[in-house]
């Protein structure tokens, strides 16, 4: 039997594979534009959505992706599951193995748990985010969104701004963007930078004004208050002064530059309410909703790949 196709990290994929994947994703995006947005490609396949950590958009995105391809998706709600009743994690895995399924999508708050999980189940496993570690499907949908706006990815200037320390999106994005030959610059105050930052091999700035008029892509990260055990930043006012995107800064962006955010946005912190409110009028520039719709196409392509 062939090796099962887990998608745990994008490190395992070559540049050629990623380029090929971006092209293939177009075919899945096309399905979403049809009147009948459903094809029978994965009919009869059962997919389990196993979220040990709260999530709305990623969970729903996978759910829509599976349904567009006619797979049966079952949500395994861990807040009401046996884990809460004292079942050990290895026994939960055994339970899930005993239910007939073809693929498992999993999110967990412990970095690395998903790799352990994948070794113990016989079906492909897709990482939907583990702790502060990786979020490969988010990185791919971010790359796809950029690819849709700029034909040539190489040497494109990307600024990733905000809470790098607590962000698995930042980790996965930086690795993927570097791999694709893009010019990545990270903007964050020192206390929101991880200690092992030098391993990222990227340039660094403290202030959004250093990158605003030069970047092709402005990627704002979410302040992850839920992961911050202590206060990392003196005040919101201070954050606004050095890191937030308000109307004045928005107007300084390059003509063809785009604005991205993995969502959900903390209005008034990363991006001002004013800028958020003009998205529908500025679809060429503000890509936050485009990221969400692209996410469905990317996840369809991934599910199809993992089951082929």
């Amino acid at each position: 039997m062939d090796k099962k196709k887990d998608i745990l990290s994008l490190d395992e994929f070559s540049v050629e594979q990623i380029n090929e994947f971006l092209i293939q994703t177009e075919s899945f995006a096309e399905i979403l534009k049809r009147d009948i947005k459903k094809v029978p490609a994965l009919r009869g396949k059962t997919i389990i959505n196993l979220f040990f950590e709260p999530s709305t958009r990623t969970k729903v995105s996978f759910e829509i992706a599976a349904k567009r391809l006619s797979a049966d998706l079952i949500n395994f709600n861990t807040s009401s599951s046996s884990l809460r009743k004292g079942e050990s994690e290895i026994d939960t895995i055994k339970t899930i193995n005993s239910m007939e399924n073809d693929l498992i999508i999993i999110r967990h708050s412990d970095s690395g748990y998903i790799n352990y999980f994948a070794k113990n189940v016989p079906v492909p496993v897709v990482n939907a985010g583990d702790g502060k570690h990786e979020h490969p499907t988010q990185a791919l949908l971010d790359l796809y969104t950029i690819y849709k706006n700029f034909t040539n990815l190489k040497d494109l200037k990307i600024a990733i701004i905000g809470d790098i320390l607590n962000s698995r999106v930042a980790r996965s994005d930086i690795k993927l963007f570097n791999k694709m030959g893009m010019d990545v610059k990270v903007v964050a105050p020192s206390m929101l930078m991880p200690e092992d930052f030098s391993s990222f091999k990227t340039k660094f700035a403290n202030n959004i004004d250093e990158v605003i008029s030069d970047a092709d892509v402005l990627y704002m990260l979410r302040m992850q208050f839920e992961r911050q055990e202590r206060k990392f930043y003196p005040s919101i006012k201070e954050y606004n002064k050095f890191l937030s995107l308000d109307m004045a800064r928005f107007n300084l962006m390059k003509k063809d530059a785009i604005l991205m955010h993995p969502g959900p946005v903390n209005r008034g912190i990363e991006i001002s309410g004013e800028v958020m409110d003009i998205e529908t009028l500025n679809k060429d520039k503000i890509k936050i909703n485009a990221q969400i719709s692209n996410g469905v196409a990317v996840r369809m392509a991934l599910l199809y790949y993992a089951l082929s």
């Binding site: 075919s27 094809v39 009869g44 391809l69 199809y304 082929s308």
Partner: peptide, 17 residues
């Protein structure tokens, strides 16, 4: 996406419709 031999083999390269 419409093949009936899905359990035998899903073609991994997909062209545009």
């Amino acid at each position: 996406f419409y093949r009936d031999d899905i359990n035998e083999k899903i073609k991994s390269d997909v062209n545009i419709t």
